[in-house]
Design a protein around this nucleic acid. Structure first.
Lengths: 247, 247
DNA sequence: CGGGGGGTTGATGAGTGTCAATACCTGTGG
DNA sequence: CCACAGGTATTGACACTCATCAACCCCCCG
C-alpha cells in the first residue's frame, strides 16, 4: 500500500542540495500565482532544506522566537497549542506545499508547536532574509500575502466546523477536505492514507477518539467508506460531501 | 453611560475629509510598527472613508468579489459565514483599529459577511491600488503581513476556545479578551459596553444564548461581575482570567 | 396601549465525553 | 523467529454538559 504522503521525487531531492523552487514538484501549490524567474532564484538561495525529519520531532515549539517560515515538501506535520491546564488543541494538519509559522510574524514568537507526524522534509525560509529580499521584490511578498490569506480562510473553516457542526458532519468534513487536498497533490481522492492518528484527528475536530471510531463505524455500515487503521477508502464521496454540508 | 465604541474624535472626523493616517487616533493600533511619513501619506491618498455606517448594514457579503480591506474607525462589526443548512457562524468581532477582509486576498472572494452592529465608521483600502502602491513601498506591505499574522493567531485562539473549553471558560475568555482590547483603546478594562447581542456572543462562542445567560448569572452570583444588558462590569478580572485558563 | 425584540429562568432530553474492558498493531530485544 | 510491551483502535455502559422548548419578563418604540 503506497504511502501518499511520501513525495514522488525523494531521490531527486537527496541527490541535489541546490534545488531550485522552479523545479520543485510542489511549485504550483506552494506559489499560488506565477512568479518571476529571478524571484524564484533568489528565494532558492536563502531557503534551507531539511531532509528526513523524524517522526515526533519538532520544527519549532510554542513560545520559541520566530526565525523562519516552513514549507512542507513531503510527509505530514501538525500544529497545536497548549491550553492553561495542559490540554493540547491541534490547529492544523499540513501537507506538502503548505506553509507553517505564519502566525508568528507579528508577535515574533511561534504561537503553536509544529510536530512531525511521519518522516518528512521541509524548506525553512529565514524570515529576516526573506524580508530583506522582498524589499526589492514586491511580487514575492504578494505571494506570501496570498498564502496567509489562504491560512486565515482555512482557520475560519475550522471555526465554523467546531462551532456549528455535529460529530458526523465534522468527520465527513475533514474527510472531504483531506480528499480534496490529496487530489490537488495528484493522489486518488478516494483512498486516503492518513498521516495522523485518531487521537490527533479527534483533537483537531474537538471530539473524543471514541466518537471518531463510532462515526467511522456508522459510515462504514452505511457503505460510505472502509476504514482500517490509517487507510480509509471513500466509496461515496458525493454523499459524504452532502453529509458534511459543503457542496 | 458612555458608549465605549464611539470614537473619541468623531467631530474631528466629520470636519475633515482628507484626514491623514498619521493623525488618526488609531495609528498605533492600526499600524503595529513605525511607518515612514511618505508611506502614510500615500496610504491616506487611496483610502476611502465611510462615515456613519448604519446598524445592520454590510461592509460586504460572503461571496462578493474582493475589492477592499476595511479598517474599523469607530463602532463594532461582526463577520460571519453561513453553513450549508443556513446557520451562521460568527467568526469575529472587530473594534476600532482592526482590519476586515484579509481572508479574501487569495481567493478574490470574501469568505464571510461583515455586518455593522452599531453605527460605525471605517476606512476602505482598495486592494488593487494598495498593491500598486506597495510595489514601491515594501514597508507598507510588511505592515499588512503583520496584521494578517495577528489575524491568524486570533483565529487560532478561537479554535482552541471552541475545541477545548467549557461554557464557563468560553464566556470568561471572551470577557477577558474584550477587556484587554478595550484597554488598549484607552477605555476601562473593567466596564464593557458590548456592541454585540447575546445572540451574536453565543453564536461566536458556539453556545446557546440561554447558556450565556446562565453563565453570566452564575458569575454574577459569585461576585465576579454585574451584567445588565450590554453593559457588563467586571469586578474580579484576575479571577476571570484564572477561570478562562489563560494568564 | 399593544407589539416585538431581547433577555432570563426552568424542565427535559439528546449528543458526546468519560471510564473500562478488550482487541489489535508495531517495533524491540532476546 | 517468537514473545512481549506500549501505543492505538474498537466497543459498551453510564454520566454530564449543554441545547432545546416553553413560559415569562422587561424595555423600547410605534
Amino acid at each position: 500500500m503506497m504511502d501518499v504522503f511520501v513525495s514522488k521525487n525523494n531521490k531527486q531531492e537527496r541527490q541535489s542540495t541546490n534545488l531550485n523552487c522552479k523545479n520543485c514538484s510542489l511549485y504550483r501549490i506552494c506559489l499560488p500565482k506565477e512568479a518571476k524567474e529571478c524571484e524564484l532564484y533568489a528565494l532558492s538561495k536563502i531557503i534551507k532544506r531539511q531532509q528526513s525529519l523524524k517522526r515526533n520531532s519538532y520544527l519549532f515549539r510554542e513560545g520559541d522566537p520566530f526565525s523562519a517560515i516552513y514549507a512542507i515538501k513531503s510527509g505530514c506535520v501538525k500544529t497545536y497549542r497548549l491550553t492553561a491546564n495542559g490540554k493540547e488543541q491541534v490547529c492544523g494538519f499540513y501537507l506538502p506545499g503548505e506553509l507553517i509559522g505564519l502566525d508568528a510574524i507579528e508577535s515574533g514568537i511561534y504561537s503553536c508547536s509544529a510536530k512531525i507526524l511521519q518522516t518528512s522534509s521541509a524548506c525553512a525560509i529565514p524570515y529576516t532574509e526573506f524580508e530583506k529580499l522582498s524589499k526589492n521584490m514586491p511580487g514575492l511578498q504578494q505571494q506570501l500575502l496570498r498564502l496567509m490569506s489562504r491560512e486565515i480562510a482555512a482557520q475560519q473553516w475550522l471555526v465554523t466546523l467546531l462551532g456549528k457542526q455535529s460529530a458526523d458532519e465534522r468527520v465527513a468534513s475533514i474527510l472531504c477536505n483531506l480528499s480534496e487536498r490529496f487530489e490537488i497533490r495528484g493522489y486518488s481522492p478516494n483512498e486516503l492514507n492518513l498521516g495522523m492518528s485518531r487521537n490527533d484527528l479527534g483533537n483537531y475536530l474537538g471530539l473524543a477518539i471514541e466518537t471518531i471510531s463510532r462515526v467511522l463505524g456508522r459510515f462504514h455500515q452505511a457503505g460510505l467508506l472502509t476504514a482500517n487503521g490509517k487507510n480509509i477508502q471513500l466509496h461515496q464521496l458525493d454523499q459524504l460531501r452532502e453529509l458534511a454540508g459543503q457542496f
